[in-house]
Design a binder for these strands. Structure first.
Lengths: 208, 208, 208, 208
DNA sequence: TATGAATGAGTGTTCATTCAT
DNA sequence: GATGAATGAACACTCATTCAT
């Protein structure tokens, strides 16, 4: 499940272990020493097995985005109507084998930094995702069930909402502490509810 | 426009200058030497006038969020219907005296890091914004013109879309280079169009 | 009592205030900012009134040693026998208007550093003290009541014992905590007892 | 002779090299860069092998005091009468493999600073020394050859005289230059003479 | 006379990286 | 394949000092 082609088991284990570190602290906030510690290897082993800090980060990013795109592609392929495809798209991204927890913070930081550390391989996977959503939207427009909309903006909306919600849980907690008047039910919903509500809002917004 | 109360002109100029540096590189990616250089002062002056790196960052964040919340509050106060209020909310955030350029990347990184460097003062301004949107939505629900929805999620959706779009321009450019087939018109729209399209999508999604 | 000739009251107050700081932390351990704070003046005032850090230190040292030598000289002049003179010498140094508390640590550090920051003016006062003891010892030898001894070594012995004892109180406390078996009575004696016991030991050692 | 248990040769060489630097300039007066230079290693190696500046200092201090106490203990164990033991005590401290040159200034500064940087491990060695002298004095008192005296004060007297004399050579030189009338013979004596004269003075002072 | 503001030159410490073994 | 040891280059931060007012 975690083994990529042409990668030693050691390298694969390392990438698994360091993914969460990069997700938690970001490229600049992470120390190579910490990556080594969390991967239970020597710092030099990181270099021997994979490469320098930037390479480590690139490998992590590529794995993450490839998996997300692959899973969405598989799910969307099995969906019927264009609405179903869009729901699939949202739902898989929201769950994504639990990887949204890592993908979201990493991608949020990449966006914030203008994609400075985003390798082309990762960009390609993002394009794949964008393409899948675009096709579903086009299909709906052709069938006359959806309004013709800016597909890229809808993509932003879906991905932005999911990533923001997925990552800002600690902030939500503090907001609740600071403003006890807020109703907690809306602030803390499950991934399933999240996917459903986002899909409802988006589909209501684009249905004819 | 840039002068805060109780802050020396030097300190104020420093904060103006370093805001864009923190926005571009994030807390961990910024070097204090660079902050000083961009503010045209000596490193030691930064400490004398304001404080250490963390304090500098906090002041920047607080100013940014306070201005955004203030401007939205003023605009929303002058709006009539609840729909108008929501449009105002979106429009001001999208423009926000040009500050979205700075606020977006900083907040995206903060979300990604669980708000580790988010001072309460900044959180409070975020709550203010959340509250303003919530009131408009409640009003619409009471008047029977809007569906009752999860206000927090709508907030995520608006803010997420705006921040993502505002910040990912460099990535969009690379996507276009990589996949020349995409129609550029949808990918590169003005702030005005952005505000309008987001408002349309969101309002279509929540209207009864 | 604290006013030196040709020194403004401000400068004099500054020197009084900073003496204890230099005594507590030593030249290298002291920050000019702390000197200013303890003297209740601005850092720049220190420079205006007295001079740079080294000058401040020199003035403190000179005042301290001059007072000690003056007081001993006065007391010894009023003493009768050579034994009485030596007792006076020891007693005044042990008390020295309470200044041993400051003189001892400063001089211990100076000795440790080879007198790197010891101005000639201070050295001269030390010579005065050495001379007074030497005369008393010579007188005793001439009178046939004291053995002829190395006066310099006796000086070392007296001054070393007094300064060490005066300064190592905090260490004594820790020693007692660490080795509860020690009898505290010998470790914590008054200045009067100290002067008397040192005088007894030294005089027993040099009497014929 | 310099190798401590459980310490790498590199670390041991570093400690040897930096001992004299700390002795010459004191904790606050020393720059880590200078420690590295004198130890012929990179600054970072200091941290890798031993630790920060304070830790370096502690290790130096502990080694120094442990050696002094060990050597005194061995010598005293081989001595016969209590007088001989006291002479041994003084003589070994005065020579102490040449380490008095380092121990004296470091301890003088520690005393001056209230032992602020004195680790318990060092304090323990000081207690050992104090205990050895105390036993010899008690033995002499029991045998009726020595007066009952404040052992701690005698300890101060011996140690103070030796440390002061050992460290103030540069000051003595300047005193001689300033007051050419002094007889140099008393001011500049060998370590052997020093030990003997101090022992004579002290023993004369405490003999019955 | 006194000081708030400013700064060049460090200060201790940490970093990502390399390399001999 | 794996690592303990070593380090050049930075890093955030502080210092003694100056100067305009």
């Amino acid at each position: 499940m975690t083994t990529d082609a042409n990668i030693s088991p050691t390298a694969d284990g390392i990438l698994d272990a360091i993914t969460r570190v990069f997700a938690d602290k970001g490229y600049d906030g992470v120390r190579v020493a910490e990556l080594a510690q969390r991967a239970n290897v020597n710092k030099a082993t990181l270099y021997y097995q994979i490469g320098d800090k930037e390479t480590l980060y690139h490998r992590v990013l590529e794995r993450l985005l490839k998996r997300a795109a692959d899973e969405v592609a598989e799910a969307v392929a099995g969906a019927g109507s264009c609405e179903e495809k869009i729901r699939c798209f949202i739902s898989i991204l929201a769950h994504n084998s639990g990887n949204l927890r890592f993908t979201a913070p990493i991608m949020l930081r990449e966006v914030a930094s203008g994609g400075r550390n985003l390798p082309d391989a990762a960009l390609l996977q993002m394009s794949r995702l964008l393409g899948m959503l675009g096709e579903a939207l086009d299909e709906g427009a052709r069938e006359g069930v959806l309004r013709p909309v800016n597909g890229f903006l809808v993509h932003m909306m879906i991905v932005g909402t999911l990533m923001l919600y997925s990552s800002n849980e600690p902030i939500r907690r503090r907001v609740v502490e600071l403003s006890p008047g807020l109703d907690r039910e809306n602030l803390f919903i499950s991934r399933e509810e999240l996917a459903e509500q986002v899909a409802d809002l988006v589909l209501s917004g684009i249905r004819l």
